[in-house]
Design a protein around this nucleic acid. Structure first.
Length: 363
DNA sequence: CAGCAGGGGGCGC
DNA sequence: CGCCCCCTGCTGC
């Protein structure tokens, strides 16, 4: 695997680098690849193809150095009784005829093998396809389902929509359709799930399989009514359950959900699950494609991408030229640079400042 | 009712 | 900026 990484880093889209490795590790086949020669290509034909082919004499191994092929001269010198172009089982009047015969009958199966990988191929074209799909760093707009590469993200989406309409969407554990592209997901749901979703919303294109779910959707999305009012605060919501949960979060002192690994306790199972994920999960399935960072949650990865790898700065300060990637950063900037309110007063003296941190530093 | 997704904030480095 | 937690909207069952 180390060899693969080296090749990627050197030149991600270059067969030459991979070939150079093959040269070192796989002898004759690799040398042919490294020199750009076509070794046993199925489409090799005629004198020109014969010239580019490196063949091996059944009795003397590789053809003489410099020739790169089983040359007529070698046959004439070493195997004078064999005829102009000879195989132990076949004699041809032309080099190309012999070549075609050897390609068809004797070329070693699976001669093209990628290092450290079980798959081997019978032709260089197949090996190249294998390398493209499995070992090359994918181009930014390369289709994940075939070898096609697109010029833009829009083209890639269009390609997937046209050629792989069902590939980029699937159901998660809760039966919900998920996919990285909303457009593709929508098409997937229209084509695959529409038959299951009998209840359609009259206000939007939402559809579901249960009447009760549609009722919930109408309440949440198309109603302004919030009949469930909290008696302790201003919170109001659309469902009884949400009010119950609110009371648990906001107004309950009971913490029946105790973490088995530490002292953490909380009022809801959801929070406990979240805690377990952040604090006690060792698995980090969400790997950043730009750096080595791996996250425990999809959310964590999303935030990391925003902080570290996003070049867009949609949050522009209205007071100065400052722009940033997150709303949080802008808020922090406004507080430090443009706020005149000094909410934090030192208990020991008259010093006042905009942030709690400043107080602590000065103390 | 459970769970997912996501916004927001505190805290420490 | 990463980690962690709180909280809520919304969906599926």
């Amino acid at each position: 695997m180390e060899a693969q990484v080296e090749a990627h880093d050197a030149h991600p889209n270059s067969l030459q680098n991979i070939s150079a490795l093959l040269l070192n590790q796989h002898g004759k086949v690799g040398s042919a690849l490294a020199s750009g020669e076509a070794v046993g290509d199925a489409d090799s034909s005629g004198a020109s193809s014969s010239k580019n082919i490196r063949l091996e004499c059944s009795q003397h191994g590789l053809a003489p150095a410099g020739a790169g092929q089983l040359q007529q001269q070698h046959i004439d010198l070493e195997h004078p009784t064999s005829g102009p172009a000879h195989c132990s089982k076949y004699t041809s009047n032309s080099g190309s005829g012999l070549l075609q015969y050897i390609n068809a009958e004797h070329f070693l199966e699976n001669s093209f093998k990628f290092p450290d990988y079980e798959q081997s191929c019978t032709a260089r074209k197949s090996l190249q396809e294998h390398i493209n799909s499995n070992h090359m760093r994918r181009s930014e707009h390369q289709c994940q389902f075939c070898l096609n590469s697109c010029a833009t993200d829009a083209d890639l989406k269009q390609h997937i929509l046209l050629h792989h309409p069902q590939r980029n969407a699937q159901k998660n554990l809760r039966g919900k359709c998920v996919g990285s592209c909303k457009e593709i997901l929508h098409k997937h749901c229209l084509s695959i799930c529409s038959s299951m979703k009998k209840f359609r919303c009259s206000e939007c294109d939402y559809a579901c399989s249960r009447k009760q779910t549609l009722k919930s959707h109408l309440l949440y999305k198309h109603s302004t009514e919030k009949p469930f009012q909290c008696t302790e605060c201003d919170y109001a919501c659309t469902t009884k359950w949400d009010l119950k949960r609110h009371l648990l979060y906001k107004h309950s002192t009971q913490k029946p959900f105790q973490c088995a690994e530490c002292n953490y306790a909380c009022s809801t199972k959801g929070n406990l699950n979240s805690h377990l994920l952040y604090k006690h999960s060792t698995e980090k399935p969400f790997q950043c494609t730009e750096c080595n960072l791996a996250c425990t949650t999809k959310k964590g990865l999303k935030r990391h991408l925003l902080y570290k790898h996003s070049t867009e700065k949609p949050f522009q300060c209205a007071e100065c030229d400052f722009a940033c990637t997150t709303k949080k950063a802008l808020k922090s900037h406004l507080l430090y640079k443009h706020s005149t309110e000094k909410l934090f007063q030192c208990a020991e003296c008259n010093f006042a400042c905009t942030t709690k941190g400043t107080i602590l530093v000065n103390v």
